[in-house]
């Protein structure tokens, strides 16, 4: 049996559209997430002869605050709805995919790197490209969505398909 969300996909989608409209109205920009990562990296380890930081500084700072808020929001709702679970290896990872803690560490580390590197190559992620760009019907973002989905399908079927058990 799959986990049933507190709010279903339909209402989650409507609320996400609404919050992006509000961000457009109040902040005069769309929602985004992936520039927060190189921005935070540059705060911690300044890169010399940096051509990238000036380009992402403004949106990086915005997205870092936005994601910090996202963290707090999730803490609050997960405590209220009693869905907070302090875990390292997700149950799905162990039960459905029959994988262990070591592989979770390895995968989380390798995947996180590819995730942000790919997002910065393309200029956005699920939030900035697929979601914010998609609802503006941006060609670049829909193009990104096609290739991200293709990459994900390919990787999922090569890596997890044979391990998956109902």
């Amino acid at each position: 049996m799959r986990e049933k969300p507190i709010i279903n996909w339909f209402w989650a989608g409507i609320l996400l559209a609404l919050i992006n409209l509000i961000v457009f109205l109040v902040e005069h920009r769309p929602i985004g997430a992936s520039t927060a990562f190189p921005y935070l990296g540059n705060l911690l380890f300044p890169v010399i002869n940096n051509e990238y930081l000036p380009e992402i500084e403004k949106s990086g700072r915005w997205e870092l605050w936005f994601l910090a808020g996202g963290f707090l929001g999730a803490v609050i709702t997960s405590l209220i709805t009693r869905t907070f679970r302090f875990t390292f290896t997700p149950v799905y990872w162990e039960k459905r995919l029959k994988l262990g803690r070591k592989s979770r560490i390895l995968f989380a580390f390798f995947g996180g790197f590819l995730l942000i590197f790919g997002a910065r190559m393309a200029g956005g992620c699920t939030s900035g490209h697929m979601f914010s760009g998609g609802m503006q019907l941006a060609v670049s973002s829909l193009w990104f969505g096609i290739f991200a989905f293709a990459g994900g399908l390919l990787a999922a079927h090569l890596i997890y398909r044979r391990r998956y058990t109902e």
Partner: peptide, 26 residues
């Protein structure tokens, strides 16, 4: 970038904008 991003998302299991929330719920 999209291809690398999609592959990375399947390996890590999260999106850039969903990792802080995942940490928030433990």
């Amino acid at each position: 970038g999209g291809l690398i991003f999609g592959i990375g998302m399947v390996i890590v299991g999260y999106c850039p904008g969903s990792m802080p929330e995942a940490v928030g719920e433990g």
